[in-house]
Deep mutational scan, measured.
Amino acid sequence: TGIVNVSSSLNVRSSASTSSKVIGSLSGNTKVTIVGEEGAFYKIEYKGSHGYVAKEYI
């Protein structure tokens, strides 16, 4: 489990790349469930599926 550490919002992406499609966003202080790691990204549970967020903001 981690907490989103941004002042505005954090993009949730379809894969572990900054060039991948943005599938949603999370507000600061949102609790997320981390299910894996891939490079500079965490794989998280997101809306019944999975998404990826940059580690530096969790």
Score class of each variant (00 low, 15 high):
1 T>D: 08
1 T>I: 14
1 T>G: 08
2 G>L: 07
2 G>I: 08
3 I>H: 09
3 I>N: 06
3 I>E: 06
3 I>R: 11
4 V>E: 03
4 V>Q: 04
5 N>R: 11
5 N>I: 13
5 N>C: 13
6 V>F: 07
6 V>H: 12
6 V>G: 11
7 S>V: 13
8 S>Y: 12
8 S>G: 15
8 S>D: 13
8 S>T: 14
9 S>K: 12
9 S>Y: 13
9 S>C: 14
10 L>K: 03
10 L>Q: 05
10 L>Y: 04
10 L>W: 04
11 N>P: 15
12 V>Q: 00
12 V>F: 02
12 V>C: 02
12 V>M: 03
13 R>H: 15
13 R>D: 01
14 S>H: 12
14 S>W: 08
15 S>P: 01
15 S>N: 09
16 A>D: 03
16 A>G: 06
16 A>W: 05
17 S>T: 09
17 S>N: 12
17 S>D: 12
17 S>G: 08
18 T>S: 13
18 T>D: 14
19 S>D: 14
19 S>K: 13
21 K>F: 09
21 K>A: 15
21 K>V: 12
21 K>W: 08
22 V>A: 06
23 I>N: 01
24 G>D: 03
24 G>H: 02
24 G>S: 03
24 G>Q: 02
24 G>W: 05
24 G>Y: 04
24 G>V: 03
25 S>E: 11
25 S>P: 05
27 S>D: 12
27 S>T: 12
27 S>Q: 14
27 S>R: 14
28 G>H: 14
28 G>K: 13
29 N>K: 10
29 N>H: 13
29 N>G: 15
29 N>Y: 14
29 N>S: 10
30 T>P: 03
30 T>M: 10
30 T>C: 09
30 T>V: 10
30 T>Y: 07
31 K>M: 14
31 K>I: 15
31 K>A: 10
32 V>G: 00
32 V>L: 05
32 V>Y: 03
32 V>Q: 01
32 V>D: 00
33 T>G: 04
33 T>H: 11
33 T>K: 12
34 I>S: 01
35 V>Y: 07
35 V>H: 05
35 V>P: 00
36 G>Q: 05
37 E>Y: 07
37 E>R: 06
38 E>V: 10
38 E>S: 09
38 E>N: 07
40 A>S: 11
40 A>D: 15
40 A>R: 09
41 F>E: 01
41 F>G: 00
41 F>Q: 02
42 Y>L: 06
42 Y>E: 00
42 Y>Q: 01
42 Y>R: 01
43 K>P: 00
43 K>N: 03
44 I>W: 01
44 I>F: 02
44 I>L: 03
45 E>N: 09
45 E>S: 08
45 E>R: 09
45 E>Y: 10
45 E>T: 09
46 Y>C: 04
46 Y>T: 02
46 Y>K: 00
46 Y>W: 12
46 Y>V: 03
47 K>G: 11
47 K>N: 13
47 K>P: 02
48 G>L: 06
48 G>S: 08
48 G>W: 06
49 S>K: 12
49 S>V: 13
49 S>C: 08
49 S>Y: 10
49 S>D: 08
50 H>K: 05
50 H>Q: 07
50 H>W: 15
51 G>E: 01
51 G>W: 03
52 Y>W: 12
52 Y>R: 00
54 A>T: 07
55 K>Y: 02
55 K>V: 04
55 K>D: 00
56 E>T: 09
57 Y>F: 14
57 Y>H: 10
57 Y>V: 05
58 I>F: 06
58 I>L: 06
58 I>S: 02
